[in-house]
Each structure stands twice: as structure tokens, then as C-alpha cells.
């Protein structure tokens, strides 16, 4: 196989891993703490991409767009949380899943009303190309990788070194006991939900220059996001990171071999891993409940 193609596939795979990680870390956190599967994250992802498109085309600055997208999503997620999601925290997983899927559909429909059906382009904010072992690699892809690493470290720092993070880790273990200590668990839930949705929006923002922004983009990435959380194990941040790395590489190298493998190969990987460990790589502890 052509070495240059391989290198650029690996870098592309790594940057895709970064995007998958940002998108799924929220899903994983929400499942860990609230025992809910928040399918509306895919709406925030699409919303982030659309907002960066709008703000970038208005102001000309991608970075302002990033900020604007995250703020807009924060507001949207807050409204959704107050009106809808708040009511299902204590309910079984099925309940939140169907409900948030409804939110997702509603959101996609609204996006179609606001921005129309035609795909929108977002220009890459960093246009240079860097030479790695004789292969030209767009710097933006490297930036995405670095950003994802920074977010991973920040999330780890937040969870392990701050008191709120400690409370979230305790809540992942047993939310009722955290409440019995005197900590307002609902506020922790809201915080986690908002954090997750902002990270999902960030995923949408940085993914936008790779693809055309379209209303169905949230739908088309769901499968990959699910494969990442399942392979890694729901509720584990480390597992999510590891499996995002795996899926990213499988997707980009698979596509190099035969285009349809991009979608098929990670599914096969998922099936094999589930065959060995039905709870995913790092997901054992949580499945007791």
C-alpha cells in the first residue's frame, strides 16, 4: 500500500477519533451519572455546525463562530433540560431514550426550517499544510487532534481534581448516596447535561470544515457515535477515548481498502468486541444496575 496514503489516512483517522470522542464523551457521562441515553446530543452536534456556519459567514471569523455555536447550544440545551429532560432523570433508560430521540427529531426539523435543506460549506480556519514523513497533511487536522487531547485532559482534570468532578464520579457510582450526603444532585445533572451538549456542539463545530453542513449530519454520525460508546463501554471516559481511537483508525484505513468498509468495518469490530465482552472494553462496573 502507498505509504503516503497510509500516513494521511492515519492522521485523518486520528482527527476523526477526536471528533468522535468529543461527541461521545457527553453520551457517556450522561449515561454514567443520570443513567439516561441522551440522543438529543446529535441535535446539539448539528446545531453547533450550523451556528458556526452562520456566524462565520456573518463575521468572517471561525473562532467567533465556535464561541457563538457553543453559547447558542448552551442556551438551547438549557431550555431542553428545563422543559423536557429534567422530568425523566429518575425514569428507566428506555424512557429517556425515546424522549430524547423525539427532541432530536424535533431539532432536525427545526434546523430544516431555519437553514433549509441544501448543504452549507464551512471553510477551514487553518489552511496550511504540514509535511510529515514526506506526506502533506492539513494543519487543521492536526489542530483537531490537539484540541481533542486538550479536552480529554481537561475532562479528566475536572473529574479527578475538582470537587464537582468528584461529586460526579461519586454519582456515577451511586447517585442516591450523593443526595443523602446533602449535595443537590439535580444541579449536578444539569451541569453534566450542559457540559455534554457543549462538547457535542464543539464536535459539530470542528467537524464542519471536513464535511458539508446538512440537516441529516447528526443522523449520519449516530452510528459511529454508538459504535464508539458501545466498544468503549457506556459511562467510561477512558473507554470512550480508547474506542474513539480504534473506530477512527478502522474507519479511515477501512475506507482506504474499500470505500463501503468505512461503515461496515467498525460494525464488525463492535460485534467481535461484544462477543468477547458484552459490556464493551471498559464498561463492566456500571452494568450491575
Amino acid at each position: 500500500m502507498n505509504g503516503q496514503l497510509l500516513i494521511s489516512a492515519i492522521v485523518l483517522g486520528l482527527s476523526m477519533s477526536g471528533i468522535y470522542f468529543l461527541l461521545t464523551v457527553g453520551l457517556s457521562l450522561c449515561y454514567g451519572l443520570m443513567r439516561m441515553i441522551s440522543l438529543d446530543q446529535f441535535f446539539y452536534y448539528a446545531l453547533g455546525a450550523y451556528m458556526v456556519y452562520t456566524v462565520t459567514s456573518l463575521t468572517g471569523s471561525f473562532w467567533l463562530g465556535m464561541l457563538g455555536a457553543m453559547l447558542t447550544t448552551l442556551v438551547a440545551a438549557f431550555v431542553v433540560e428545563r422543559l423536557i429532560v429534567k422530568r425523566v432523570y429518575s425514569k428507566p433508560v428506555m424512557f429517556s431514550m425515546i424522549l430524547t430521540f423525539g427532541v432530536n427529531l424535533l431539532g432536525v426539523g427545526l434546523i430544516k426550517y431555519v437553514w433549509g435543506l441544501s448543504p452549507k460549506p464551512v471553510a477551514s480556519p487553518i489552511s496550511g499544510i504540514m509535511n510529515i514523513f514526506g506526506t502533506g497533511v492539513p494543519i487543521y487536522r492536526l489542530f483537531v487532534i490537539v484540541l481533542a487531547v486538550v479536552v480529554y485532559l481537561a475532562v479528566q482534570y475536572f473529574l479527578n481534581k475538582t470537587i464537582l468532578g468528584t461529586a460526579i464520579r461519586a454519582g456515577i457510582d451511586d447517585a442516591e448516596k450523593v443526595e443523602a450526603l446533602g449535595i443537590n444532585i439535580n444541579r449536578l445533572f444539569t451541569l453534566t447535561f450542559l457540559l455534554s451538549s457543549v462538547l457535542s456542539a464543539l464536535a459539530g463545530v470542528i467537524h464542519a470544515p471536513f464535511v458539508m453542513v446538512s440537516p441529516e449530519m447528526g443522523m449520519s454520525i449516530t452510528a459511529f457515535a454508538f459504535m464508539v460508546v458501545i466498544i468503549g463501554g457506556l459511562g467510561s471516559i477512558k473507554g470512550t477515548m480508547v474506542s474513539a481511537l480504534i473506530v477512527g483508525q478502522v474507519v479511515s484505513i477501512g475506507a482506504l481498502i474499500w470505500a463501503p468498509l468505512a461503515e461496515m468495518a467498525p460494525f464488525l469490530v463492535m460485534m467481535i468486541i461484544l462477543l468477547i465482552k458484552p459490556t464493551g472494553l471498559y464498561g463492566s462496573k456500571l452494568m450491575n444496575r
Partner: peptide, 16 residues
């Protein structure tokens, strides 16, 4: 909390 140290367990209660 299995994943938390004794210190963190106490910190949580102090925080609350």
C-alpha cells in the same frame, strides 16, 4: 463510593 478515596469521600461531605 468505590472509586473515591477516603479523603474525597470526606471532601464531598464537607462540600455539601
Amino acid at each position: 463510593f468505590l472509586d473515591l478515596t477516603v479523603r474525597e469521600n470526606l471532601e464531598l461531605s464537607s462540600y455539601a
